[in-house]
Nucleic acid binder design. Structure first.
Lengths: 225, 225
DNA sequence: CGGGTTCTTGACTATCTTCAACGAAAGTGG
DNA sequence: CCACTTTCGTTGAAGATAGTCAAGAACCCG
């Protein structure tokens, strides 16, 4: 999951259906909270489609700085290889199930052509979503970043409750910070501000209710000027 | 071209050789300075490999904010589609030549399997390079960003002059700023600082000489602490 | 040469980070 | 199961980094 621009209605709510029925292949992988699916530098044998739970893709810099590259929510594909290797660490934020696909199904259409096409399309969608994320990282204020993040979460995993939307934040404040290029303090302060302006309610640390979706959407684009 | 981490030696200097000899197909496209190869929203019919010159991929936000997504230098592939459409604008910074490949050669291996594989690998490399770029946008200071940018430029298009390296900056300061998530003023000030500390020489506005590559590399990783 | 754009530099300001303290939540071991 | 320890989240004050506004210099193009 990336922070894409709200204008483009990510119409298709990401589906968790199998990408192919031909070579349905392998049983789901189960991953307990905190355990790793792979590490940076590992050889890639499989790609995975998250079917339930949430994973986190991270990249570390020598001096301890960290970037959360993306979160993998149900429907997302994780594990695209570069030169055959993984380029990030991947671990589970909560108990997670993943449907494995052989790497060679991405790289060749011989074993399962529809699957090959689906994985390729997923890779291309990934590129496009990452381009939007660039804009967010490079050109948005802290308030816009946090608002955009909450907005995407609400669209992707929110429970519709009429005007309101409730969703869980399975990740920590520092995960959010490292995802958006901020500090935990700034994330926390920004959430508090959104709460005080009655745009969201912080039901508990890991549960957000969006009270005024339109106001939130406005903040994503930088209206509060 | 993205700002990747300097640790991983991008060993293979990106080659401008054709990706396939099978279906060598179409004559090179020529693009004059300032003219557009495609616009955001255009339907994708072709991908292009830059053979000479430089293109710029940009994305605009309603309020006038701009993100330069990447620069296309010789060897780079541009034009990866998302849902069949272009997701950025692309124009030429200088007179440019591009080798076109049919989109369907990316999406299916039927017409030219080696080309299909090569384009797919290029897309996967793109994802990996963009992940590094996230780190740069989200977690680096202005000085680190500019130093990293110069470092990548020097590796990609620098003329080796013994210890020194000279290269042209075909893009404006504001292109660099929009690429790195800074303002033109900050880019300019940072370059001046690098010049004053004798790490680079600004031969003229669009030509840089790296005088102390090791010092530059140090700044990329944030040594100047 | 002249006009317009781009680049640089300065002064000031805003935003975000840093450092620090405290409270809440969660994990651990007896 | 409870007390203890540790981690995580919030808040405040102070400081730094980068942005804004403005002016002048350098560059480019016709």
């Amino acid at each position: 999951m990336y922070v894409t621009l709200p204008t483009e209605h990510t119409a298709a709510v990401t589906a968790t259906a199998p990408l192919s029925k031909t070579c349905l292949s392998f049983p789901e992988t189960r991953l307990k909270t905190g355990s790793y699916l792979y590490y940076e530098g590992d050889n890639v044998d499989w790609l995975y489609q998250v079917t339930s739970g949430v994973v986190r893709l991270t990249r570390l810099l020598s001096n301890g700085r960290r970037q959360v590259i993306s979160f993998g929510f149900p429907g997302d594909i994780v594990g695209f290889p570069s030169a055959g290797d993984h380029h990030t660490d991947c671990d589970a934020l909560v108990d997670t199930r993943l449907r494995p696909y052989r790497r060679k199904c991405l790289e060749s259409s011989t074993c399962d052509a529809p699957l090959h096409r689906a994985l390729l399309q997923a890779a291309l969608r990934e590129i496009s979503a990452m381009q939007d994320h660039f804009m967010m990282l490079g050109r948005k204020s802290a308030a816009e970043k946090v608002a955009s993040f909450l907005n995407v979460m609400s669209e992707r995993v929110g429970d519709d409750m009429g005007v309101h939307t409730r969703f869980a934040l399975p990740m920590s404040r520092s995960d959010i910070a490292d995802f958006l290029g901020l500090t935990t303090e700034t994330v926390s302060r920004t959430l508090t501000q959104l709460r005080k302006s009655k745009i969201i309610e912080i039901e508990n640390i890991h549960t957000i209710v969006v009270l005024r979706p339109t106001a939130l959407l406005g903040l994503c684009l930088g209206e509060g000027d």
